[in-house]
Amino acid sequence: MKRRKILVIEDEADIREVIIYNLIRENYDTLGASDGEEGMRLIQAESPDLVLLDLMLPGVNGLDICKRLKMEPSLGSIAIIMVTAKGEEADIVLGLELGADDYVTKPFSPKELVSRVKAVLRRSRAERQDETGDRIVREGLVIDSSKHSVLVDGRPVELTATQFRILRFLALHPGRVYTRDQLVNQAIGQDSYVIDRNIDVHIRAVRKKLSKYMYLIETVRSVGYRFKDTGE
């Protein structure tokens, strides 16, 4: 299998070094950049598979890079994991809405970072293979889009159209955090009238109906929701 290439944009040399050391150990090709300009240059020149992006950068900041990446169609497929300090939830939400795939908060453990990198890379591959997701099976949960039905341990449960769409959307991308805005826009569709707060109500209702499996929908405080990545 082709080795995957990861770019680490981080202004603190020691942190950059330790991240790169760990990625190399996992057999990834790595590149390092200490500021936004250099990062952008390397992205264009090397087209990495994934970018580990510090949001607080001197010069061009992380969110700008995120925006530029997702605006450029040729670079849109590059996965992004934001590396931020806690207390920057607003930036995290913004980054996710701009198209970042995941985020890690400082101080992080290298092991966790590596597993996030793996998950994101796996996901972006999986999405390309199975984009329809007609039948999603997660633990004892079966979501069938063609029949518009949800089975919990074989027993059917009733969900409203909106609830079904939210559940299916989250289950289709396990491990990935979605902000409330993203859920409204992507899962429910812009035409229907659901305002931010309503998402919480819907999620609560879905969880209740999943009963035993309600742990599968995780709340990410001050950011949004995520379907538990069970590593399937």
Binding site: I15, V18, Y21, N22, R25, A85, K86, P107, S109, P110
Partner: peptide, 26 residues
Amino acid sequence: FVANASHELKTPITAIRGMVETMIDD
């Protein structure tokens, strides 16, 4: 100030934690 201070503190802590855990693992 709080944001700056915590950022300033987090940077060395992140580096130290990263290196220590890497050394333990590897």
